[in-house]
Every structure is written in structure tokens, then in C-alpha cells.
């Protein structure tokens, strides 16, 4: 489905602030799979998702969807294929506009925007039907500005919007991180439900080990702009939270292994 080969991205190249956010990342995502991406802060998880979504064009490498090279596609063009939910609950919706207006926009994600009335009675009843399934009582507030809702409600709506038209790929970037534990659990549950019932292909960045172990069927660990671990299929089934923490430790240990350690070990190990 998604095929990423050798993508790299350096921010502020050739300055003191240079950050190699992605280094030659290769990744294949199978149709219908649900992949969690974990890693320390600044390891490049969001940058990877942004590269896939087209927020920027990578310095190097190729991104293909179903064999189609989309590396040079702009972000809005990729929106035909990709649904997104961001970490910031305010990022996925237009705060001053009503729930109905926001959803109506998502009902034509990546399609033309004709000069016909957007929020019709028919659209509204369709929206009410789907929103009712969230069990948040929002179906009676379709004309309220989305900015008046809680972060959890907005995030649930963003998720609904991102999946209203079945995306080829759903990208979730720590979409429960900014929520209180209860809302986070609810949105996580909703995520699982939607992904399973619609059989979506999804990638989810998360800092919650529990989520990484519970929800998806694959775990990719990133560090310093590289994929350092990839638990798939059987391995994913076996993996437990302590294993993930161990792996983090190992990766970090390797980090601490610098030239001075090399000198120390040359003297004392051999």
C-alpha cells in the first residue's frame, strides 16, 4: 500500500541548528494494517507522518502509494488519499465554524467544492446519524461553533471527519496525548472501533506503551530519525510493555556509547 524508501529530511541544513530529523527511512505498510510508531521526543515520528502527508517534500527518497509516486504531490492533493488527526485538538477543526459546517467540508475531502449550498437539511440529518454514534450528545448541537466543545469532543469529531470518506491511509499523531485520561481512553476506543469496522490502513504515533501494545498489529520504534525496531506479526503478539522499555533502554545505551567509552573499553575490555 504505502512504500517509503530512503527518505531523509534535514532542518536548517548546514547551520549550527542542523537537525537530521529523518535519515534514510525505509518502511512498507501493508493494506489494512494498523501500525503504531513510538520513540523518544524528537526522534522524528511527527516528521515521518508529515513527510507522508506532504507537509513538506523530503530532501531525498521516494514515497509511493499503491505504486504511484506521490513524493512531489502537495499536501492538499494527498488529502484525497490520506485522513489525518493531529495531536492538537484545535488543529483538525475550524473553531469558529459549526459542527455541521466542519463535517460538510470533510464529506468532500479531496473533491471539488461546488457552488451549491453546503449545509442542507439532507446533509444535516446524515451528519446527525453518524455523530449520534459517538454518544456525546453532539447531534443536537450541530449548529454550535466547534470551538465551544471540549478537546475530547473535538478530537472525536476530527477522527470522524478524517474517516468520513474512507481514506487509503489514516495518520494519527499522538491524537490522544492532549486529552485527559478519560477522554483519551474514549478516543482511543473510538479509533479502534473505526479502524476495525472500516478496515482502514492506519499509522498512529503514540507515547502510550499501553496503546502501542493494545491497539495496533505492528509497532515501529524510531530513534534519531531512524527506525530502530520493527515488531510485526508474531513478534508483535509476543511483545509486552517491559520489552518496549528494554528496547528504549538499549537504544539509549547505544547513544551513551561515545568515543570516550570506546577508548575506555579498548583499555579495559580487551
Amino acid at each position: 500500500m504505502l512504500e517509503i524508501s530512503g527518505i531523509s529530511k534535514t532542518f536548517f541544513p548546514q547551520t549550527v541548528n542542523e537537525v537530521k530529523a529523518l535519515r534514510q527511512v525505509d518502511l512498507r505498510i501493508e493494506e489494512g494494517s494498523f501500525t503504531a510508531i513510538i520513540g523518544t521526543n524528537g526522534s522524528g515520528k511527527s516528521t515521518l507522518l508529515n513527510a507522508i502527508a506532504g507537509t513538506f517534500i523530503p530532501d531525498d527518497g521516494i514515497i509511493r502509494v499503491d505504486g504511484k509516486n506521490i513524493t512531489e504531490w502537495s499536501e492538499y492533493k494527498r488529502a484525497q488519499l490520506i485522513g489525518r488527526v493531529f495531536q492538537n485538538p484545535f488543529a483538525g477543526t475550524a473553531a469558529d465554524m459549526s459542527i455541521a459546517e466542519n463535517i460538510v467540508m470533510a464529506m468532500r475531502r479531496g473533491q471539488s467544492r461546488p457552488l451549491t449550498r453546503a449545509v442542507t437539511q439532507k446533509a444535516k440529518s446524515e451528519i446527525a446519524d453518524r455523530v449520534r454514534m459517538l454518544n456525546m450528545g453532539l447531534e443536537d448541537r450541530l449548529d454550535n461553533a466547534i470551538g465551544t466543545l471540549s478537546g475530547g469532543q473535538r478530537q472525536a469529531l476530527t477522527l470522524l471527519m478524517a474517516t468520513w470518506l474512507k481514506p487509503k491511509l489514516l495518520l494519527l499523531d499522538e491524537h490522544t496525548a492532549a486529552l485527559d485520561p478519560k477522554s483519551a481512553a474514549k478516543v482511543a476506543e473510538l479509533t479502534k472501533q473505526i479502524i476495525e469496522s472500516e478496515r482502514l490502513t492506519a499509522m498512529m504515533v503514540t507515547h502510550s506503551m499501553q496503546q502501542a501494545v493494545d491497539l495496533p498489529d505492528r509497532i515501529v520504534m524510531m530513534h534519531r530519525g531512524q527506525i530502530v525496531e520493527d515488531y510485526q506479526k508474531e513478534n508483535k503478539k509476543r511483545v509486552r510493555i517491559p520489552d518496549l522499555l528494554d528496547t528504549f533502554d538499549r537504544v539509549q545505551k547505544r547513544e551513551l556509547f561515545d568515543e570516550t567509552v570506546a577508548a575506555l573499553l579498548t583499555e579495559q575490555y580487551f
Binding site: 483538525g92 475550524a94 469558529d96 465554524m97 479531496g110
Partner: peptide, 19 residues
């Protein structure tokens, strides 16, 4: 509607496939 949203949240508008 998307025109109005552009002033509200550009990121969202792009994510909805609007230039």
C-alpha cells in the same frame, strides 16, 4: 465554506484537500 475555514484553520483546510 472552505473559504471561511481558510481564515480559521489553514492546516485543517489543507488536510481536507483544499489548496
Amino acid at each position: 465554506t472552505v473559504l471561511r475555514a481558510t481564515g480559521n484553520n489553514v492546516q485543517m483546510v489543507r488536510a481536507q484537500g483544499v489548496n
